[in-house]
Design a protein around this nucleic acid. Structure first.
Lengths: 210, 210
DNA sequence: TTGTGTATATTCACTACCCGGTATACATTG
DNA sequence: CAATGTATACCGGGTAGTGAATATACACAA
């Protein structure tokens, strides 16, 4: 089980990430993490001050790659801004079809640690979500949404986190497609009206629910 | 601390509800619940088979009153269907301004128990959310949304649960207002286009984001 | 080259505590 | 009596975290 190709600290972090994602933070003991990492608990405590420290470090490490993934999905999708954002949701829908998919780790962590409001992991989760929202805002600004860019980013965040929650609850990825369509429509309406009222205003977009 | 005006079982349930809501299920011990209820642990176990049973019973008991509250808020709000639904979100925004507000217990429970997918409390949470969605669907059907009623209900659920998640994460109730406006707009668009294209089609609704 | 010092990295064995749940006995009430 | 409800005291097991010793690696001096 032990894999010496990675430095110990990274192995621990990776083991923790997998277990936290699968079962949740409070359901996983540091003994379980140490065992999965092929390491004694004592060496885990050499690399991390506490379980809380491990949780926080884990979440901080996920910030960058998570945002990068969204950016990649955005760029890889063909079409206008609305379709490119919808592409993110559709990639998420694809992920959610995997039985091992367990929603958004940032959201879940902030729920699990709700009685510790200042916990560094919660702070990291908030920061991550704000970064995503900020990135969306810059996308819409570049697309010419003007003063609507920031409110629009907030709406997309509501749909994104709503879809994370609902899909996780019902284990039904089709809600992610509903979110994709809704997001695309909200964006298209804003961008077309910003560009001038002669454009493709309100050709009704059909629903693609299940 | 002991309040004999309520039967023991109800007192336990109420104590559990308060503590679960405040700190989360996994963070609360049955000792803490028993103490808050002014009862020994053994008495608690006389009335409930296990902690899991207590959690499930608690969530089942919240289903009815929660839906009733939404219905009341809907009926008490003046205006068309879109505004009445937005009224629910605005009441929620008001609740969220209280520091003790801790989001949606159904969502939170399903996150905390993610590693126990068949847990009766999770089943109850799913059922509750489906009941709310079904109620929304019937509202939109009555309002003449036709085939759009069910997809529209799904969209509102995305916004609702999204707002629960985002407001809880950032502790910023203004997202609930954004959700209110977004929901109203989605509903108004559907209902007006269903009623015929001559009506109040697309008077732009201003955003109320701070 | 050999010896010594020092910082890093790791292990085994352990503590102190808290958790869900229970055995048993006693009290109250119809 | 019989049913219901409550109390004291306890259990086995899991939890986060630690003490003390050891292994490894590299720096530098004799």
């Amino acid at each position: 089980m032990k894999d010496r190709s990675q430095p110990t600290r990274e192995r621990i972090l990776q083991a923790a990430g997998g277990l936290f994602h699968r079962d949740g933070i409070r359901a996983i003991s540091v003994d379980a993490i140490a065992e999965k990492a092929g390491v004694t608990k004592r060496t885990l405590y050499y690399h991390f001050r506490s379980k809380d420290d491990l949780v926080a470090t884990h979440l901080q490490a996920r910030d960058e790659p998570n945002l990068a993934l969204f950016k990649r999905w955005f760029e890889e999708t063909q079409g206008d801004t609305a379709e490119k954002i919808a592409g993110i949701f559709r990639h998420l829908a694809q992920s959610a079809r995997n039985a091992k998919w367990k929603g958004c780790g940032f959201l879940r962590t902030s729920v699990e640690l709700i009685n510790l409001p200042g916990h560094p992991a919660v702070v990291a989760a908030r920061a991550h979500k704000k970064r995503v929202e900020g990135w969306l805002g810059s996308i819409f600004t570049e697309a010419g949404a003007g003063n609507d860019a920031l409110p629009l980013a907030r709406q997309i965040m509501l749909l994104l986190d709503g879809a994370f929650a609902v899909v996780l609850l019902h284990r039904d990825p089709s809600y992610m497609e509903t979110a994709a369509d809704t997001a695309a429509r909200l964006i298209a309406d804003r961008l077309s009206s910003a560009a001038g009222s002669e454009s493709s205003l309100h050709e009704r977009r059909p629903f693609a629910d299940q």
